[in-house]
Every structure is written in structure tokens, then in C-alpha cells.
Computed example of a mutant assay.
Amino acid sequence: MLKKRKIPNATLDRLPLYFKFFKQSEENGVDRVSSREISEALDIDSATIRRDFSYFGELGRKGYGYNVRALVKFFSEQVQGNGIKNVILIGTGNLGSALLNYNFTKIHDKINIAVAFDIDEEIVGSTINGVEVIDISELESVIKEINAEIAILTVPGQVGVELSHDIESYGIKGILNFTPEKLAVSEKVTVHNIDLSVEMQALLFYMKHKY
């Protein structure tokens, strides 16, 4: 159970990294790890790790470290929640298709990409990695039918803006936005923006200034 205090966004951003680390450690048969080992694996300083974990109470013991199995369970609940979350994907072009072919369940076993949408008649009715592609005209009815809470947008920027207001009204609470545009949603919707051009520029910048 989270403490009733505000957790910094930077800490929230690192939770999936911690979860992935503990999950992989468990799969490798590791029983416990130290903050130093986490630090070396994730390139996050130990003080930051201890500060991040302090927001959630006593997760480890001095001289013992962190119990891997217990932390997998804890971060699974914090990152993924307790139930299966249905996700929709809108736009099955090159990027959308690549995401559908990615094995999300390897890391996020409570995330289910239930259905994809497109406007291309040649694609509608097909399946990609077991996910059916449905005509965009059925967007509202399907979101409500499967109680989808999360949408992945891999459409042209302006299309994403036009769709974002609608999908909020249909019940979407979180959006993974691959368009470069600011979406037309209220503060009630959590949006995580992934602009590949910006990420590439950031990579080049860090490469240039690393040494």
C-alpha cells in the first residue's frame, strides 16, 4: 500500500526499471540483491534507489538487501495493478505492427493488447500476432465492451489529436502517444509521450557529451 504522500515523477518513471530488474533476477534464480547490485545493473546511484524505495516503506533490511520474490510481487502491484488491463492500439502501420509483434507479456503479464484499429480496408479483418484489426468506426463500442483503459496511438499526429478527445469520452484513462502532437485530453487522462525523433536527438546528444 502506497503512503499518502506525493511521489516524484522521476521516481514513478523508474518503477518499471526496478520491476524489470527484479523480475529478471527472479527468473535467474537470484534470492536477494543489494542496492549496489541494483545500482550497477541500472546505472542509478544507490542513494537514489534507497530514496525511491523509501516512499513505499521498508522494502529491504540493512545487511540483508532486498528479497527478490517479495519485490517482484510488490512492484508488480505498483506498476501493473492487480487485474488484467485491456489495451487497444490505433494505427497498424509499420510502427503499430511492430508493437503488436512485441511480446509485452514477457515483462507485463497483466497487460493484454486486446484489439487494434485501422481505416485501411485491406488490413481490417486481419490479425497481427493474434490481435484482430477492426475498423475504426467500431472504436467506441469495442472500448466500452471490453472495458479498455489504455490506448496506444501510432497514427499521424493530427489524427491522434482528433481521436484523443473521443477516446477519453469512451473511457480511456491512459495513452501511450507515439505522435509528435499534444493530445486534446483533460488532466484526468495520463499521457506518456514517445517522440522517436526527440529520443534520437537525445541519444546523439548524450553520445557526444558522454566523455
Score class of each variant (00 low, 15 high):
residue 10 A to W: 10
residue 119 I to Y: 12
residue 23 K to S: 06
residue 100 L to R: 05
residue 141 S to V: 11
residue 143 I to R: 13
residue 98 A to M: 11
residue 136 I to V: 11
residue 123 I to N: 04
residue 201 Q to L: 15
residue 65 G to I: 09
residue 104 F to N: 03
residue 117 F to M: 06
residue 139 L to K: 08
residue 155 V to Y: 00
residue 134 I to M: 12
residue 88 I to Q: 02
residue 28 N to I: 00
residue 98 A to H: 10
residue 147 N to A: 12
residue 186 S to Y: 09
residue 122 E to C: 03
residue 155 V to I: 06
residue 168 E to Q: 13
residue 201 Q to D: 15
residue 140 E to D: 13
residue 45 D to S: 13
residue 13 D to C: 05
residue 4 K to N: 14
residue 95 L to P: 05
residue 163 L to G: 04
residue 141 S to G: 10
residue 152 I to H: 04
residue 169 S to E: 14
residue 63 G to F: 11
residue 178 F to N: 04
residue 18 Y to P: 01
residue 132 E to C: 06
residue 90 I to L: 06
residue 57 G to P: 04
residue 109 D to K: 07
residue 132 E to P: 09
residue 111 I to R: 02
residue 96 G to M: 08
residue 39 S to G: 06
residue 179 T to F: 06
residue 110 K to N: 14
residue 168 E to H: 04
residue 189 V to F: 08
residue 172 I to F: 05
residue 210 K to Q: 15
residue 65 G to R: 07
residue 90 I to H: 02
residue 185 V to E: 10
residue 118 D to A: 06
residue 93 G to K: 05
residue 54 S to T: 02
residue 88 I to T: 01
residue 162 E to M: 13
residue 26 E to L: 09
residue 192 H to C: 08
residue 12 L to Y: 03
residue 133 V to Y: 09
residue 200 M to V: 15
residue 60 G to E: 11
residue 73 K to H: 12
residue 19 F to H: 08
residue 73 K to D: 13
residue 21 F to C: 00
residue 93 G to R: 03
residue 116 A to P: 10
residue 92 T to C: 14
residue 12 L to E: 09
residue 203 L to Q: 14
residue 24 Q to M: 10
residue 80 Q to P: 00
residue 136 I to L: 15
residue 116 A to G: 14
residue 208 K to F: 15
residue 178 F to M: 06
residue 53 F to K: 02
residue 188 K to Y: 04
residue 6 K to S: 06
residue 200 M to D: 11
residue 26 E to S: 08
residue 30 V to F: 00
residue 17 L to H: 07
residue 171 G to W: 09
residue 30 V to S: 00
residue 77 E to S: 11
residue 94 N to W: 01
residue 147 N to M: 04
residue 119 I to L: 14
residue 23 K to C: 00
residue 7 I to R: 06
residue 197 S to Y: 12
residue 108 H to I: 00
residue 174 G to I: 00
residue 160 G to E: 07
residue 122 E to A: 11
residue 66 Y to E: 09
residue 182 K to H: 11
residue 27 E to F: 03
residue 123 I to C: 01
residue 208 K to S: 14
residue 143 I to W: 13
residue 146 I to L: 10
residue 126 S to R: 15
residue 112 N to Q: 10
residue 47 A to E: 15
residue 93 G to L: 05
residue 99 L to K: 07
residue 83 G to P: 00
residue 161 V to A: 05
residue 133 V to M: 10
residue 24 Q to Y: 02
residue 145 E to L: 08
residue 22 F to I: 02
residue 90 I to A: 02
residue 174 G to L: 08
residue 46 S to I: 14
residue 111 I to Y: 05
residue 206 Y to Q: 12
residue 158 Q to R: 13
residue 13 D to T: 04
residue 178 F to A: 05
residue 190 T to P: 00
